[in-house]
């Protein structure tokens, strides 16, 4: 053991270590508080602005013909969002989950290539998918809700694939082996054991992709275009969505229109929050619980 003289500097450096530790802890906590405070500020501001106009009228009426007029609402945009995102989800969820099963359960060169492309697609700016659908579809068939759904499908697909593949990888191999050892085929094991075990996690992934798609605006500008005049439920025609109406009303410069845009923003935030909370709730009683 070291004698007296060497313990003093040792203790001093230990004290310095404690000080550094406290400082680092404080800095990190401050960063966390700042990040959360910023988010809360955004939410509070949106809520404050939105609540001035959000009400029954807003949720049941279409905007007035003259954007300078007060009153009216975004019901056509809300209905359009439901239809367009609904179509995009109905397409991207089954295809994305199937692709993720191939990625996670079968593997091989094709799966690796698809996994890489999925990562690339996740990083693709959504305006690019809008431009792509515009060039391929809108130029030939015109603006429509379906074109918008196609663009959102391209936004959602890689998100669903990535989320599902991650959850499938969390399913313990023990369960797959146990199923195979009982005489189940590989396909049967996936359908009856792996997918049910991962169900809540997959649902979470799909919900988060839906939340993302609901807020997308850029790809819809080039595809669904918008329709502020009346409620359109036929997706082969041009349609409005909540996000498009927020954009169109916000850029007019009229205070009346901007009031509607704020109310729309708050509605959108509430919808996205609802999906995110739903995803969290499902995720909590998801894989961690069921894999035990």
């Amino acid at each position: 053991m070291a004698a007296g003289p060497s313990t003093l500097p040792g203790r001093r450096s230990a004290r310095r270590g404690l000080a550094v530790n406290a400082a680092v802890t404080a800095v990190l906590a401050l960063a966390a508080v700042a990040a959360v405070a910023l988010l809360l500020w955004v939410l509070a501001y949106v809520a404050g602005q939105g609540l001035r106009y959000l009400g029954p009228t807003f949720l049941t009426r279409t905007p007035p013909g003259d954007p300078a007029q007060a009153g009216g609402g975004f019901v056509n945009g809300i209905i359009g969002s439901v239809i367009i995102v609904g179509i995009a989800t109905a397409l991207s969820a089954p295809i994305g989950i199937a692709a993720a099963v191939h990625l996670a359960e079968y593997g091989g060169r094709l799966a690796r290539a698809a996994g890489f492309l999925t990562d690339v697609l996740i990083g693709l700016p959504s305006i690019v998918t809008g431009a792509f659908v515009y060039a391929l579809w809108v130029v030939n068939f015109g603006f429509s809700g379906l074109a918008g759904a196609a663009a959102l499908f391209l936004v959602m697909l890689p998100l669903v694939i990535r989320a599902t593949a991650e959850v499938l990888r969390l399913v313990p191999d023990d369960l797959r082996e146990a199923s195979l050892a009982l005489g189940a085929s590989h396909a049967r094991t996936i359908v009856s054991i792996v997918l049910p075990t991962a169900r809540s996690g997959i649902t979470t992934g799909v919900l988060l992709a839906v939340a993302r798609a609901v807020g997308e605006t850029a790809p819809l500008l080039l595809t669904a275009l918008g329709n502020d005049l009346f409620v359109e439920t036929n997706p082969t025609h041009r349609m409005s969505t909540l996000s498009l109406q927020i954009f169109n009303n916000a850029v007019t410069g009229f205070r009346t229109a901007q009031a509607r845009a704020w109310a729309g923003t708050l509605t959108l935030v509430l919808i996205v929050l609802a999906f995110s909370f739903g995803a969290r709730l499902l995720g909590r009683r998801g894989i961690a619980h069921s894999a035990r």
Binding site: A178, S179, A181, L182, A184, T197
Partner: peptide, 26 residues
């Protein structure tokens, strides 16, 4: 048949369904 090192009841299934799992899977 085979029994593994770690118990592997299927987490989404009841006790009854676990017992019948092999028969249903086959």
């Amino acid at each position: 048949g085979m029994v593994f090192q770690r118990p592997t009841p299927f987490p989404t299934m009841s006790i009854r369904d676990n017992v019948l799992a092999g028969l249903h899977l086959g």
